[in-house]
Design a protein around this nucleic acid. Structure first.
Lengths: 216, 216
DNA sequence: GTCTATAATATGATAGAC
DNA sequence: GTCTATCATATTATAGAC
């Protein structure tokens, strides 16, 4: 079975994970993103990586092993960055700083690893069932982490009831992930987008004037 | 060339568009949504529709003609409903009613035609280039309509500068379309989701307290 | 680590009978 | 309007040489 772990399986160097393997993954991610799962053949991946289809089997057991790795990397690398950034904050950081940091880091992570994250969002629903099921725990773990982040925001008070928190999380995730479809690094920066999103969600979560008692 | 129009090309009845053709489209939309463009073969579509692959060519010229129709229907049917609902409003309707109506109708349209709208969002990026380019004007027209709707909201005053309006539209679209990934018709109704989204966006667009001058 | 060759199967599309 | 039969090509995966 081809090497399926990430941790230091160095060939000659200390923790080099094999340049060939990395090239195959990068190429696969780019093609899966653009052509979909079934639309990307092993010949396509091999061709763009400068080798023949049979050579891919030196690095991976099957097409599904490749796509499984692409899916995993797309989530875990963003997760790692967001967790590191949030843990680097002081315990007394307020809701705005906390959410700004998490959102900005999530956006940076996604756009820095575009082919993987975009491929993940686009092909997750069309990958063979056993690949999707094997990947689900990775997605769920990241989602649960965001539940924690928003709960930590809510602990600082001034928020509405529980239901708003779930909806706010779903809106926020959709808005963040949606940036992959339009953000090109033009006039507004990723940081500005993150701050706008944070503001929107925090405003939405605070107690608001009702219809019967509108704002002035 | 197979019939590519939608308007009354009745076989025997007045404006019946051929039950066979409709069955093919419905089946194709469902499969494209679940398996992607390349992952859905003509044999798959035909099999689920109770016929043989060759019979599909009685209704359509090619696979691309089928996918083009699925894409078009996914946008146009929602567009038609949203426009009708907005035009039915009195001219003096305020920003909240206007946006609530547009958002709720968009959500209803999407979820009523799930296979088409979801297929559209999922496979648009992986369809052959000429199919995508042919479909683009349809998408653009709907997007421009939403620019108008938000501009009409903004005309009622109290909003910030132009940039916020574009970001708000992009956030809103991502959040609305994202409901297809999680909404199951459980505890909250689609109307409740629409109202929450509307509130969030309107709060975000109104002049807000800055960091230097925070809310009480 | 990469190749050629090949097996077994699936694909979009067409021809032509009924 | 649906079928069977078929063409030309593409697919994942394996065997085995270098």
């Amino acid at each position: 079975m081809a090497d399926t772990q990430r941790s230091s399986t160095g060939t000659t160097d200390t923790n080099e994970v094999s340049a060939g393997r990395q090239l195959v993954l990068d190429t696969a991610a780019r093609l899966f993103r653009a052509e979909g799962y079934a639309g990307t053949s092993l010949r396509d991946i091999a061709g763009e990586a400068g080798m023949r289809a049979a050579s891919l089997y030196h690095y991976f057991d099957s097409k599904d092993a490749i796509v499984g790795e692409v899916l995993r990397i797309g989530v875990e690398q963003v997760f790692d960055k967001v967790r590191a950034a949030v843990e680097a904050l002081p315990p007394e950081a307020d809701a705005q700083v906390l959410l700004q940091t998490a959102v900005h880091t999530h956006l940076q992570g996604m756009h820095g690893l575009q082919d993987y994250t975009c491929a993940n969002l686009r092909i997750f629903g069309q990958v063979p069932a056993h690949v999707r099921e094997a990947h689900l725990p990775t997605r769920d773990a990241y989602e649960r982490y965001w539940v924690q982040v928003l709960a930590r925001c809510a602990r600082q008070g001034g928020f509405d009831h529980q239901r708003d928190l779930r909806l706010a999380r779903l809106f926020l995730f959709a808005a963040m992930n949606g940036t992959l479809d339009w953000f090109q690094g033009g006039a507004v920066s990723l940081k500005a987008v993150a701050d706008e999103m944070t503001e929107l969600v925090l405003q939405g979560l605070r107690q608001r004037p009702s219809k019967e008692n509108p704002a002035p």
